[in-house]
Design a protein around this nucleic acid. Structure first.
Lengths: 354, 354
DNA sequence: CATCCTAGCGCAATCCTTTGCATGATATTC
DNA sequence: GAATATCATGCAAAGGATTGCGCTAGGATG
């Protein structure tokens, strides 16, 4: 309809018989501008319904007030709350978020970074796609001096800010819990080992066994792709659960690196009349919403994703305020919290030993 | 570290002994530029690692290639796949998404719109916050001539593009299905009635009953806030389920406007030994992921959210390509699909096949 | 041979804000 | 009362890409 020309500070200046510079300074609350002038400007701003053109501002200042966030996929609760965590922190600082999905594809990740760089974002917060092995695009961000924070799936070799969940410790806690519940043959659904988080979870699992003098049985460790369509992971979990229970010596405990694989396994156990947790106790990972509503309630590791977002945002802010030459990268480890539910709570464990 | 100055087209022009205009046109593949020149420019672009400054471009062209998307909250699968649906379409057109969360608060919604307008987005795709009653901010977008597409929770009175799910029909289908399964006293978990989608679902419910000569019992219709923290909705569902079954004449069917409320109710039914679907058959809404993994599998209405995103994006593109004076708003209704699972499939109701 | 056309490119203005420096007017100091 | 400080504002140049218009050289046309 009436695609009006938007009012600019020049328009305002004209009306007030002054110059754009003064208006600009008045709006920025510059100390060298008189209170009357400021008042007059603000009145005119209201009257003419002025909306600052942040594009022009960004061009001049060389800063867009936008933070680029790259998520592998926003389908997971994890990323949704992580983003929320970032927003909580940066909103008051006047930053806004531009969210890109890499869909775990290297190509999309690279092109997202290019786009973000093109619009001159003030920083990038990213989790690395599962496909990615060439990291030159991240290197480029760093070389350009654009603040970069990696989270969750990171590249250890890159000297940048990182905020990650302590997957090793999480896994360790989960497995120790199973051991304390009386499990002696604990299986593990592992993720692809070129991804750090899954590597660390496996390590935590192994360490927990070792610390309790339990043997490691390779048969009980099943590796699969835990980063893909949720429904497929559930199916895979079902199959893996089946495979485990068909073993000559089936396990009595299961630590799954994915909540969704755990769901699949639970599905199989229930279907086959295998009692949870009595015949097999189970711990998942991520504390997905479903953990509390699927029976039996699923013990899982909460990663405090909102807090993770908070921290990532804070690291960004810190770096943005630091001169590049003074900057030191920082790695924050968040401890996951074991949320115990019925899937791992053996009633027998309450009995005093005879 | 080495925060290099980025190369500009002026730099390239200098190297090639030409002018920025020529470089600009060469990059845009302008027909008045010779092929040799284009080639030379592209080579130099590679060599000097030129990255276009989209800020400057946006300022000059008055177009940012960014679409603003406002979601009430990204915690729900709904919005995640909706966003994916938009991206699928606009990615190839060179558009990018800026996602803002209103958290269902009027204030945040209004401020998000202001921000988006400030960065001169090329269009806005939004779902209205549950709190919103004053719609002047949307009116403003429209008056400014910025393409606006409303989805899911829309404002019917506004003459803008809309893409919505046919909630009336969805509810109707769900309830008819319950009737066909033999239910005669069907309860309904309704959402707050000032929100269109819940109003329409209630209407669909009522119409289905009427069309099958079933009486409406006010006691069986419970209204509650279905837009809030997921865990709370589940709890509310539990309580409402309990309330229903304590009735002198409890229902034999339940149509819930929310999948999560349905989960809560299922929780209560299972706990109390009420058989699903035999004593009470149940249909939810949204076909959330959990529908397929919580037992019993939950019959629900799939809203085809990715497709909804596709359509919203297409409507935006169409409007963006149309002159404002030629533009006619369009309302697209998507038919939800009933996904039948065990929660409503009474064994007795063996279907007579043709 | 004069005129017209066209391909290929340059000039300079434009988009709107921001900001270093200059200016003029008071106010303060010695 | 002259010199300096302070205040409030103006001037003009960025910032990088785009674009209408103008210019030139060469070929085509009559």
């Amino acid at each position: 309809m009436n695609r009006k020309k938007k009012t600019t500070i020049t328009d305002i200046a004209r009306k007030l018989n002054t110059t754009p510079s003064t208006v600009s300074r008045a709006l920025a609350d510059h100390h060298r501008i008189s209170d009357e002038m400021k008042k007059a400007v603000w009145e005119m701003v209201e009257k003419m319904n002025y909306q600052p053109n942040s594009i022009a501002s960004a061009l001049r200042k060389g800063k867009s007030n936008i933070i680029g966030v790259i998520v592998p996929t926003s389908d997971r609760q994890f990323f949704a709350s992580f983003i929320r965590g970032i927003e909580e922190i940066v909103r008051d600082e006047g930053y806004h978020l531009m969210i890109c999905q890499s869909d775990d594809q290297y190509k999309k990740e690279k092109s997202s970074i290019d786009t973000l760089l093109n619009i001159r974002v003030d920083g990038i917060i990213a989790s690395v796609a599962k496909e990615t092995s060439d990291i030159s695009h991240f290197q480029k961000v760093k070389n350009l001096g654009v603040p970069l924070v990696l989270y969750d799936r990171v590249i250890e070799s890159l000297d940048v800010n990182m905020v990650i969940s302590d997957d090793y410790l999480g896994a360790y806690q989960g497995v120790v819990h199973l051991i304390e519940q009386g499990c002696r043959r604990i299986a593990h659904f592992a993720g692809k080992q070129h991804i750090h988080i899954y590597q660390n979870r496996l390590k935590g699992y192994l360490q927990a066994l070792e610390d309790h003098n339990l043997d490691v049985d390779e048969e009980l460790i099943i590796e699969s792709d835990l980063i893909q369509n949720t429904y497929r992971i559930v199916q895979t979990g079902y199959q893996m659960g089946k495979k485990l229970m068909k073993l000559p010596q089936p396990p009595d405990g299961l630590f799954s690196s994915s909540d969704f694989a755990a769901i699949g396994a639970i599905g199989y156990f229930k279907e086959s009349g295998i009692a949870i947790p009595d015949e097999i106790a189970l711990v998942g990972y991520s504390n997905d919403f479903s953990a509390s509503v699927i029976e039996p309630g699923r013990t899982s590791l909460d990663q405090h994703t909102i807090r993770m977002g908070n921290l990532a945002a804070e690291q960004f802010l810190k770096q943005a305020r630091t001169k590049p030459e003074k900057f030191l990268s920082q790695k924050t480890l968040l401890t996951p919290e074991l949320i115990v539910r019925e899937s791992s709570l053996k009633k027998v464990a309450e009995k005093p030993s005879p």
